[in-house]
């Protein structure tokens, strides 16, 4: 099994990714945390003063949504480059190519965990209802990891064949941002669209995070089952597409 055989390499590539990411600017790591905080402030003032949304714990509500979304948006965008960005590891030596996507997604995952760690003091400051259900959060985040990894496998493999996928993906991510309940409350969605709206696994994951972290609610069985099924589908589809497209990577890069 490649996962065990190459575990040292996977870990090494993951750490290398993080080192380079946080080395490149002076504030480095701090920037990646300040970014969602600034976004939250802007969105908070715009939407609570201009649009006058009334949502309990609105600042935290936005922040949890943003950090969750950043993992998907950054994770997939960076992972898309993971195959093409390391050409010598594809054309000069054989390693299972999934490793490149996996280590890229893992480093985004670690960044995301750090961002959630910064959220912890804010939860207390803004008076979230902290209950033992918070402990379910890591499980949900691991499920989300598999969704993002499956998606990353697809976009990374397709990017080898279609080099304008970056532009297309940027638009998809923009649309996804507004199709998920990040800045607005779900109650805004008209009732007739709601059944379709909640098919989006990201909607479910963000709502689940908020239940655990802000509102102190127990996990919903239906939501959790839906998330696990989504993760399995993404992993199976991602691996199938990747394995199919992988055969010609060596020729196309």
């Amino acid at each position: 099994m490649w996962l065990m055989q190459y575990r040292d390499l996977i870990w090494n590539l993951t750490i290398t990714d993080l080192k380079i990411k946080y080395q490149s600017s002076v504030l480095g790591f701090a920037w990646s945390l300040l970014n969602p905080l600034f976004m939250m402030l802007v969105l908070y003032f715009v939407f609570s003063n201009v649009f006058r949304f009334t949502q309990e714990h609105y600042a935290l509500y936005i922040l949890v949504g943003l950090i969750a979304w950043r993992f998907l948006a950054n994770g997939t965008s960076v992972a898309m480059m993971s195959i093409v960005g390391k050409p010598s590891l594809v054309t000069k030596i054989y390693i299972p190519r999934q490793i490149l996507v996996l280590s890229s997604t893992l480093s985004s995952f670690i960044s995301s965990i750090l961002e959630f760690c910064v959220l912890i003091p804010l939860l207390f400051i803004f008076g979230a209802n902290i209950t033992p259900y918070v402990l379910f959060f890591p499980i949900a985040h691991v499920i989300f990891f598999f969704i993002v990894y499956g998606l990353s496998l697809m976009v990374a493999a397709m990017y080898v064949y279609y080099r304008d996928l970056t532009q297309i993906w940027e638009v998809v991510i923009q649309i996804g941002f507004f199709l998920s309940p990040i800045v607005y409350p779900i109650s805004m969605i008209p009732a007739q669209y709601l059944p379709f709206y909640v098919l989006n696994p990201v909607t479910i994951i963000i709502e689940t995070y908020r239940n655990f972290l802000i509102f102190g609610l127990p996990p919903g069985l239906k939501s959790m089952v839906y998330l696990v099924i989504s993760a399995v589908i993404m992993m199976v589809a991602g691996n199938a597409l990747f394995n199919r497209l992988e055969r010609r990577f060596g020729e196309l890069i």
Partner: peptide, 27 residues
Amino acid sequence: APFLELGVGFTPDLTAKENIYLYGAIM
């Protein structure tokens, strides 16, 4: 062990030590 090119995966921003560990893992 394929020696199609030496130093596959060498990363300029890492130290020699870090690169030895990275390259070794790749090999």
